[in-house]
């Protein structure tokens, strides 16, 4: 059973539909105690890191996510749910969850042709083998919508990269946590396969 974190992030239903399609049982929850006991967690997100953090705090979900992370529960962050796993973000003065060391920076392309937000299909280059990424082939494209991108402090936390003016980490991970900057639930068969692998992942990287 996968628990999908509900903090009015917008895409929790899309994530649930994708899991339904794969035949993976899931439930959407905003109950922090339920989350701590969850077998597996998807932490989705759309919109702003600032309002996301505010709602997480109000519902006690920030602490629940930290507890779950500490006890080894496999966690998949998506988009804003990836960004707020880092230490901080240029989008907000609030501290983020600090489950993976690093910052989120805003795209500031020199080239006027590169519009912000970065929106559309872009390629994924896997840099480090990971069970959740085992079906990703070189050049596979996924769907992005974001103005900020994660910069982990430790290079070893970068699992895959993409390029938009700068090269940025599009999948990050540490121990039982893996997180994608793109919308796994809207990235066609490539994203669905990632979700399917996450549903089987035991939280160990090798």
């Amino acid at each position: 059973m996968i628990h999908i974190v509900d903090y009015d992030a917008g895409n929790q239903t899309s994530v649930k539909r994708a899991l339904d399609h794969l035949g993976v049982a899931s439930v959407i929850t905003s109950d922090s105690e339920e989350l701590v006991r969850a077998e597996r967690i998807v932490f989705p997100g759309v919109g702003h890191a600032h309002s996301a953090l505010e709602t997480l705090r109000e519902r006690g979900l920030d602490k629940a996510l930290k507890s779950a992370a500490g006890q080894g529960t496999p966690i998949l962050g998506i988009c804003v749910g990836c960004q707020v796993l880092l230490t901080g973000s240029e989008e907000t003065d609030l501290p983020c969850l600090d489950l993976i060391g690093g910052q989120c920076l805003r795209f500031r392309p020199d080239d006027d042709a590169l519009k912000v937000p970065h929106m559309g299909w872009n390629a994924l280059e896997v840099g480090r083998e990971h069970p959740v990424l085992r079906h990703v082939r070189p050049g596979d494209e996924v769907y992005f919508v974001h103005a900020y991108y994660p910069v982990p402090g430790d290079e070893r936390d970068v699992l895959a990269r993409s390029r938009y003016g700068v090269e940025f980490a599009s999948v990050i991970g540490r121990r039982n946590i893996v997180a994608a900057q793109f919308h796994v639930e809207k990235s066609g068969p490539v994203g669905l396969k990632m979700l399917g692998e996450f549903a089987r992942w035991d939280g160990h990287t090798c």
Binding site: T13, Y143, S187, L192
Partner: peptide, 8 residues
């Protein structure tokens, strides 16, 4: 559509 189609 949202139940069957996983692109935007």
């Amino acid at each position: 559509v949202a139940r069957q189609v996983f692109i935007p």
